[in-house]
Design a protein around this nucleic acid. Structure first.
Lengths: 198, 198
DNA sequence: CAGGTTAGAATACGACTGTATCTCAAAGAG
DNA sequence: CTCTTTGAGATACAGTCGTATTCTAACCTG
């Protein structure tokens, strides 16, 4: 056995470079050559680890999904539910450069998945994981009946907000207000006790 | 003045072909040549009406926006608000082939806009129009205080639901349940009178 | 009918695409 | 040290990209 290298780490290096490229220049700027350049190696090296571009994209999509899950796992779910839920959503919103990069990648892959079954399956699995975790947590807090629909609604809401923030950065404040309003209605804070709005 | 032709109609013909192509094969399959083929003409003809690909995409994005506005304008806002609002959202959701085509185009352009200022501006204008119309209507019904945040929330919610339906068609029923749950909370039906959930 | 203007097809161009193949340096096994 | 396997860069290939240019046929004006 001659010269060997940590294959998985190299794949992650390339995948990370790909995600950075997607965030900075968009998914259509992703090619084997541009990814190789971003990773600081030759396209031949990239081909060693991914036989095809589709395989590379699939790996990057998984990587992006893991990042989101890890980030969400990092929020303090011991906080009051309404506050914790807000924090959870905020980790997926492009409110700073790092989160923006991840949001761009997530949404780019999601739209791409509409015409690429492999990516669609990856996205569905990631969605399912997040939905289950969120629903289970909501049930444990007891603040929401019908946790699954609420989880779906919260996820859709944050995706939609993230999408608009991408090309309307100036409307961030207004969109965050919409988030708060929606969360107020979906997960009423015990203190407010559902003030009449109708 | 020799042989002349309805320029605007030809541009719309090409734009329509482009949208069809986006819906069926995705935005990355859009090239001057593929659009020309879809429109049943040569790429030279397409170049007559759009000097650059970006100009063609911008035109198609406008066209797509107009379609959504026209479709939304077609729903019966004289129905009970809760029901009318549900119908409004449904017109933007990919629940049948035609709506799916429009949703794919909307979302593809939206993600594309994250890195293309011209498209971003077009999207922002369309968003603003829809938001204003929706907020004004909500205020006129008296069912929502703070109509603007609610309008933003509803738009984000439907975008997020549409996005997931694109690659998770099998989850449509569950996502529609989430929509109903969210609308129940955002726009309480007068009959239900806000049942306690907390 | 002749003349000029336009629609639209055809073609040309250099750049870039994904993938396959080739070459060479490095490093562990004997 | 030598051999052999591997990582990785370089290059080749056929195809597509966006755009510019050229050409032909159709039409309206005079």
């Amino acid at each position: 056995m001659p010269r060997t290298v940590d294959r998985d780490e190299q794949r992650r290096r390339v995948g990370t470079a790909l995600l950075r490229l997607v965030a900075e220049r968009g998914l259509d700027e992703v090619s084997v050559r541009t990814v190789a350049a971003a990773a600081g190696c030759s396209s031949g090296a990239v081909q060693k680890y991914f036989r095809t571009k589709e395989e590379m994209l699939a790996f990057a999509a998984e990587l992006a999904g893991e990042r989101v899950e890890r980030r969400m796992a990092g929020v303090d779910t011991a906080l009051p539910p309404r506050r914790a839920l807000r924090d959870l959503v905020l980790t997926t919103l492009p409110v700073d450069a790092e989160r923006r990069a991840e949001a761009v990648a997530q949404l780019a892959f999601a739209v791409h998945a509409a015409h690429h079954p492999r990516l669609a399956e990856i996205r569905r699995r990631i969605d399912r994981d997040i939905r289950h975790a969120l629903a289970a947590w909501l049930e444990s807090t007891g603040y929401a009946t019908g946790a699954v629909p609420v989880a779906d609604a919260v996820i859709a809401l944050s995706d939609g907000l993230a999408l608009r923030m991408l090309y309307s950065p100036g409307e961030q404040a207004r969109l965050l207000a919409a988030l708060d309003r929606a969360l107020d209605d979906l997960i009423p804070d015990p203190g407010t006790d559902r003030p009449p709005r109708a």
